[in-house]
């Protein structure tokens, strides 16, 4: 017998717990939240619904409103890709729309709009992009989408407890990687997959981007973060499909989680959100950083009084 308290210690324990209680990952997550003793089931569902509504609005805004980031480095890419989706794109119009929706949220984030961190602000696009866009295709109700968010939360929690969800700690793999893993698991569970299936998809997403560094140009959550959310969304779709057709990850979920942490810790600090390595220190990256600094100095003079 596995208790609810121990269930989130590892993926395998969580799967055994779900099998023992005959519940989904989402339900296990809800029960754990109830057990924290701060909210009732109704309040927990209501709180997640609020997150869903903010996610939906952030996707809409990123796709429909004219958006520019505070630094003027980004904006409009999501809208462009979404419109292009109907012109027979190579990756298929669904993937194109999902990726565009993911970018939309991170563009809204960069413009100081309202988003839901999933698991962080830098990776906030993948989960809503994937779930909401696939939900439109498949007519998922808000109740189903909310279950998807709890399932995603359960997977993210396993990473948070056993590895890390911070770019400063584990690089981009810990942020957009975990965001993809959460989204892939949610797709699988909403499609009737077992908890093992959901974690299988999550394991594959991380394997695909293992070692991805966090190297934000000018230290901002824009380049390459916005496009990496598009990639993360596509990665989630692919791993969900690979799982649903019966492909297994040779390396089990828990070992992938542990490896992600080891690889993250092995990264030099230049590759962990410090903007001192990778794309941030390319000639163009440095030039952009200088420009942003200069622009901000002008803006500061105008705003301080």
């Amino acid at each position: 017998m596995i208790s609810l308290t121990d269930a989130f210690e590892s993926g395998s324990k969580l799967c055994s717990f779900c099998a023992q209680e005959k519940i989904t990952l989402a339900e296990a997550m809800i029960r754990r939240e109830i057990a924290r003793g701060e909210m009732t089931r109704e309040e927990i569902l209501e709180e997640m619904k609020k997150n869903l509504l903010v996610m939906r609005e952030s996707v809409r805004s990123g796709l429909e409103d004219y958006i520019e980031s505070v630094s003027h480095l980004s904006g409009g890419a999501a809208m462009r890709l979404f419109r292009y989706a109907k012109y027979d794109p190579f990756c298929g119009s669904n993937t194109c729309r999902v990726a565009a929706s993911a970018m939309a949220v991170v563009e809204v984030n960069a413009s100081m709009g309202q988003i839901v961190a999933a698991p962080t602000a830098g990776a906030s696009g993948i989960l809503p992009g994937v779930l909401l866009e696939c939900g439109i295709e498949r007519n998922w109700t808000d109740e189903q989408l909310i279950q998807g968010l709890f399932c995603a939360g359960a997977v993210g929690l396993l990473f948070a407890e056993n590895a890390t969800i911070s770019g400063a700690d584990g690089g981009c793999q810990a942020e957009t990687g975990v965001g993809s893993a959460m989204a892939a698991a949610a797709l699988v569970e909403l499609s009737g997959g077992t908890p093992e299936d959901a974690l299988n998809a999550a394991a594959m997403t991380i394997k695909n981007i293992l070692g991805l560094v966090c190297d934000p140009v000018a230290g901002l959550v824009e380049c390459p973060c916005i496009k990496r959310n598009a990639l993360g969304a596509a990665n989630a779709l692919l791993c969900a499909d690979m799982t649903l057709c019966g492909i297994n990850s040779l390396i089990p979920f828990d070992e992938v989680v542990a490896t992600m942490l080891t690889v993250g810790r092995d990264m030099r600090k230049e590759y962990r959100e410090t903007a001192m390595g990778g794309l941030a220190v390319t000639p163009t990256g440095k030039q952009i950083a200088e420009k942003v600094k200069h622009f901000q100095e002008i803006e500061r003079r105008n705003e301080t009084f």
Binding site: M112, G113, A118, G153
Partner: peptide, 9 residues
Amino acid sequence: IVGPRMTGP
């Protein structure tokens, strides 16, 4: 994990 709701970035 799925949250907080926040103003970016």
